[in-house]
Write a protein that binds this DNA or RNA. Sequence first.
DNA 1: AGCACA
Length: 231
Amino acid sequence: MLTGDIPPNQTIYIKNLNEKVKKEELKRSLYALFSQYGRIVDIVALKTPKLRGQAWVVFSEVTAASNAVRQMQNFPFYDKPMRIQYSKTKSDCIAKAEGTYDKKKKQEEKVERKTRGREGPQTTTSNGPTADTNGGPPASTWQAKSGAQEAAAEPNNILFIQNLPYETTCMMLEVLFKQYPGFREVRMIEAKPGIAFVEFEDDMQSSVAMQALQGFKITPQNPMAITYAKK
DNA sequence: AGCACA
């Protein structure tokens, strides 16, 4: 496969990212894009000469990482197809959480790397990489229980919204979704209350809106369940 | 192309 022979890891390594995108924006977009696969623990992106154009997204579960590797492979992100693999090593934040983080060893590894490549790392402001945006991502409610879709669908510029209250109108959804760039239109079907389709210009924009509004409650009983529409 | 976390 494209992932080579790297064993599964809860951290994914992404390359071929657009280097013009600013670090903070990049992290936010990656977060928006990937949190549909599971809880994201951390995102690391550096702009040093060696490391620009790459990022690590740390999931809390390996399965989430696996889905992300498969489904977002070559996803056009800022006009460039993402190349995704499992990370070769365990992320520090995971090692720390497991209590297996060894500071001494870390230091030695660093020295080694320095001796065969003369890049001094630069500064990396660490602006809350994860928990910023819209409060924490939702735990895990809404699994569509019809068994219809279990492994998140492929990205699509059209979103499929479920679990809406019956009184929901196109206008209400429009108000919610048109705040995200690339919004095109909302479609509802008279005969099928409780669901809607929302179209964006491209997959990336629909993904951002999905993440932002996932679980949004029009009434307390109706957290929106948003997935990509089937092609 | 390039696997880090300060």
